[in-house]
Amino acid sequence: MARLTLSALAWAVGGRIPRRLGDALARGLAPGLALLPLAPVRAWEHTATLATGRQMTRRDRTRLVEAWLRNTFWSFSLAGWSDEEILQTVDVAATDIAKLRDSLAGPGLVLALPHMGSWDFAGAWCARIGIKVVSVAERLPDGLYERFRAARDGMGMEIHPVDGPDLMRSLADAVRAGKIVCLLSDRDLSSRGLAVQWPGAGTVKVPAGPALLARRTGADLRVATTRFEGGRLSISVTDAIAPGDPTSMMQEAVGHFAEAVAASPSNWLMLRKLFL
């Protein structure tokens, strides 16, 4: 009951925090929190050091905590943002928007994303430019999944539970209906993941779903990454990944993840140990 109350309180309070206040809290709290021996921050530091080949610094930790807090505040409050505010907060190249629209006008599109920046915000932005987004989420306890799904529905995103019946068929139907299926893909939540190499770091297990869905539907598979730059969100989209077997396709996706993480490790909200 206590956990349920705290969860409900977090959603109730977080949803009422305006963007500017949330950003100010993230900036103000991050330096102090980065000094604490927080297990998620320690896990990120271990993982990011292996992924990038360099030791994370105190400045990196502070930026990580700030991005973590900002993503949390934004996720709680996004359903209350105006269309104009969402559109004005995103930086994305016209060529990257064209990549999305070209795939949607042709074979369809599956996007593989790492846990970077604010992937929720990227979905809300897509909805505001007329692109329908479908994604998958874990069944969180204490009613959190239901709150999460309802909030994303309010942003124009359709969410399926990861353990839902006939999930792959539902996602394939969404691709064929001209929707983008966005799947977080830098860690595996099952025991059926694919072992691939993170360039220069080691072996990771990632879900096969994005590659399998692209192969099943004939859709393009691309990687999208997001990162905070000050109080704004930058979105990047890659060229389509060459069709092949699922392992080779996900290996190429992980290569794109690695490039994005190396460029901005503090935006990678991988708050756990990742490498095998």
Score class of each variant (00 low, 15 high):
271 L>M: 14
96 D>S: 02
72 T>F: 11
7 S>G: 13
159 I>G: 02
265 P>T: 10
245 D>K: 03
19 R>F: 15
147 R>L: 09
161 P>K: 05
177 A>T: 01
129 I>L: 12
166 D>T: 00
48 A>W: 09
67 A>D: 02
117 G>Q: 10
13 V>A: 14
63 R>H: 05
91 D>C: 06
130 G>I: 12
111 L>M: 13
156 G>W: 07
48 A>F: 02
225 T>G: 05
122 A>Y: 03
135 S>K: 02
234 S>Y: 00
210 P>Q: 03
221 L>P: 08
37 P>Q: 07
139 R>H: 09
121 F>N: 02
272 R>A: 08
229 E>G: 06
108 G>N: 08
106 G>H: 13
236 S>R: 15
249 M>T: 04
149 R>K: 12
271 L>D: 13
215 R>E: 06
77 S>C: 05
275 F>R: 13
9 L>Y: 04
229 E>C: 09
8 A>N: 14
127 A>C: 09
165 P>E: 11
19 R>Y: 14
101 R>D: 14
59 R>F: 05
129 I>T: 11
200 G>E: 11
60 D>E: 08
113 L>K: 00
214 A>T: 04
60 D>S: 12
244 G>D: 12
110 V>F: 07
147 R>F: 00
276 L>W: 04
45 E>K: 12
142 D>E: 12
24 A>C: 09
122 A>T: 06
61 R>K: 15
159 I>H: 02
71 N>T: 13
240 A>G: 10
19 R>D: 06
176 R>C: 00
89 T>F: 01
138 E>T: 08
73 F>I: 03
95 T>D: 14
236 S>N: 08
108 G>P: 01
170 S>W: 00
139 R>P: 04
27 R>G: 02
14 G>M: 10
273 K>W: 00
52 T>Y: 12
215 R>F: 00
81 W>R: 12
209 G>F: 03
89 T>P: 04
133 V>C: 06
79 A>T: 13
74 W>E: 15
40 P>V: 10
30 A>G: 02
178 G>R: 03
166 D>A: 13
237 V>H: 01
33 L>F: 08
275 F>N: 10
187 R>T: 05
141 P>I: 03
145 Y>T: 09
165 P>F: 08
80 G>E: 10
203 T>I: 14
59 R>V: 15
90 V>Q: 09
153 D>G: 07
139 R>A: 13
253 A>Y: 00
112 A>C: 02
89 T>L: 15
123 G>W: 04
232 R>G: 02
73 F>C: 03
58 R>I: 06
83 D>I: 02
55 Q>D: 07
133 V>L: 15
168 M>G: 01
18 P>D: 07
101 R>V: 01
181 V>K: 07
149 R>V: 07
44 W>S: 06
236 S>Y: 00
127 A>V: 09
89 T>E: 11
10 A>K: 09
266 S>Y: 13
243 P>V: 06
123 G>I: 10
235 I>Q: 03
230 G>E: 08
132 K>I: 07
170 S>R: 15
234 S>G: 02
226 T>A: 14
69 L>I: 05
175 V>S: 02
44 W>Q: 11
36 L>V: 04
110 V>H: 09
258 A>P: 05
165 P>D: 09
28 G>M: 03
74 W>K: 00
229 E>I: 12
221 L>G: 03
79 A>Q: 14
271 L>S: 09
253 A>G: 08
1 M>G: 06
204 V>I: 14
77 S>V: 05
